[in-house]
Every structure is written in structure tokens, then in C-alpha cells.
């Protein structure tokens, strides 16, 4: 059995290792490693389209993860204070946000937003004093919102789990000692759930940064890194893509390790 497990781990990691190895290949072909070179990294990072896509992805992932961390934490705290029925409704919707396939989230958001814009844009135009009214369209905003949906549900789940294992006695002791609810929250609850919030933020960032299918539908004229990579892959495999894949894989691994480390922390360091 141990041999089988070792084989599975090799199966999981060898393909990734191969991409990393060949990103340093001096030659152009996957079949032979002709020498060590970092030239593809230079080529990738001097490609203006790629850099633009990378910047877009970083901006979208940061914004949607921040929004998700904030709203998700608030929701997790709020859900501690409501009755079972409201809680069940929220849990069902949050569960749906996580389980519904990305392709369905993508197309339904596309359909709803296009309809919404068709109503709102003429209305805005009629109100606007000048000839150039602002037009709502698909782009940063729609990707951030659609990514944020999954991420927020994720943060609510992670923070909620941490909240339910929180020591109630500490909260009671704090209010017995005449701390205001806000002080109790700041000095007792927040430090305890902070690792969960950070972990949620990091995973939300990773999700948004890696997502292809949702962004594919709601990106409008914008390009994210996965959309750019997908389009290039379909034109053919190049070592430049290996370099970008290596950067993205390393970044994701780092973020997930950070998230796990945060979740593993029982008590915050002083």
C-alpha cells in the first residue's frame, strides 16, 4: 500500500515538476532538455499583453478577496446571532454558492448583468446632463463580484467554524468585567478569529487568481491571466507559458501554505 501511495504522490507532483523544469529549458522543445536558461522568464515578463493580464488578475484577486474577507466575516458573526431558520436559509445559499459549478455561475451572472445593464444604461443616459453618460459594462466589477460570491461563502464557512469553537466563557467573563460589546469583540473575539480571516482571505485570493471559467463569461473586454494563458495554450504550447505557469504555481503554493499555517495556529502570537 505504501508503494501505491508513493506512486500517487509522484503522479500528483511529477507533471508540475516537469513544467517547472522545462521553464528553465534553453531549447524550445519538450522532448529534450538542451541546457539551463532563464530566458523564457525574460520573454514572458517583457510581453506587454501578459504583464497587463497579470496586473488585472492581481487587482481583481486582491479586491474580491478583501471584499469577501470583510463581508464573509461580518456574515459569520451575524449568523451567530440569528434563529435556526434564518441560519438554515443562509447556510443553504452559501452552500449553493460553493457547490454550483463555475460554468453555471458564469453564464447566469452574464445573463443577469446584461439584462440589468440594458435597463440601467438608458436610464442613466436620460438622467445625465451631458452627451457622454457613464455606461455600465462587463469588466473588472463583474469579475470581482462573481469571484467574491464563492469567496465570501468560503470565508463565512471558515470563520464560522472558528467562531463555533470559540471559548464562550471568555466572552462572558469579558462582559461580566464590564467590557462593552465592542471592546469584547476587539480584545477577545477578533484576535481568536484573525487566523481564520487571514486564511479565508488567502484562499479567496488564490481562487480568484486561478479561476478561468467564471471570468471567461463575465470578463467582457478585460483579460485576466488565466484567460490569456488559455488563449495562448490553444495556439500552441510554448516555453513562455511554462515560465508563467511556474510563477503562478509557486505563488499559489506559497499562499495555500500560508493559509494552512494560519488555520493551524491555535492562539495568536502576542
Amino acid at each position: 500500500m505504501r508503494a501505491f501511495v508513493v506512486a500517487v504522490f509522484a503522479f500528483l507532483y511529477l507533471p508540475i515538476a516537469l513544467v517547472v523544469l522545462f521553464s528553465f529549458n534553453a531549447g524550445h522543445h519538450a522532448s529534450e532538455f538542451t541546457g539551463f536558461s532563464a530566458q523564457w522568464y525574460g520573454k514572458a515578463l517583457s510581453n506587454p499583453f501578459l504583464v497587463e493580464a497579470l496586473k488585472n488578475s492581481l487587482f481583481i484577486a486582491t479586491t474580491s478577496a478583501l471584499l469577501a474577507a470583510f463581508c464573509g466575516t461580518a456574515a459569520a458573526l451575524g449568523l451567530q446571532r440569528v434563529g435556526t431558520r434564518t441560519r438554515a436559509l443562509f447556510d443553504a445559499l452559501l452552500g449553493a454558492a460553493i457547490v454550483v459549478p463555475g460554468v453555471v455561475i458564469g453564464i447566469s451572472t452574464l445573463v443577469a448583468l446584461v439584462q440589468l445593464f440594458a435597463v440601467v444604461n438608458p436610464f442613466l443616459a436620460s438622467l445625465w446632463p451631458t452627451d457622454q453618460p457613464p455606461r455600465l459594462s462587463l469588466g473588472y466589477g463583474s469579475i470581482i463580484a462573481a469571484h467574491g460570491l464563492f469567496s465570501m461563502a468560503l470565508v463565512t464557512m471558515i470563520v464560522g467554524t472558528r467562531l463555533s469553537s470559540l471559548d464562550r466563557n471568555l466572552v462572558e467573563a469579558s462582559s461580566d468585567l464590564y467590557a462593552t460589546p465592542l471592546t469584547t469583540f476587539r480584545s477577545i473575539v477578533l484576535p481568536q478569529i484573525m487566523p481564520a480571516i487571514i486564511a479565508g482571505f488567502l484562499l479567496a485570493f488564490t481562487f480568484s487568481f486561478d479561476d478561468f471559467i467564471i471570468a471567461f463569461f463575465v470578463a467582457g473586454a478585460q483579460t485576466t491571466l488565466p484567460i490569456y494563458v488559455f488563449a495562448s495554450i490553444r495556439r500552441g504550447v510554448t516555453p513562455e507559458i511554462n515560465a508563467i505557469a511556474t510563477i503562478v504555481l509557486c505563488a499559489s503554493v506559497l499562499l495555500v501554505l500560508l493559509a494552512q499555517w494560519q488555520l493551524g495556529r491555535r492562539k495568536p502570537s502576542p
Binding site: 507532483y13 508540475i16 519538450a30 488564490t206 486561478d210 478561468f212 499559489s252 495555500v256
Partner: peptide, 19 residues
């Protein structure tokens, strides 16, 4: 080591197999 691949880009991991 099991969880890490789950949270890394499916696009990049599928691309590895294309390669």
C-alpha cells in the same frame, strides 16, 4: 501535500498534461 494541488490552478495543472 494533498491539499496544495487542489488550491493551485486547474488550468496550469491540466496544461502540464497537455505538455
Amino acid at each position: 501535500l494533498i491539499v496544495i494541488p487542489f488550491w493551485t490552478s486547474l488550468l496550469m495543472r491540466t496544461y502540464a498534461w497537455m505538455y
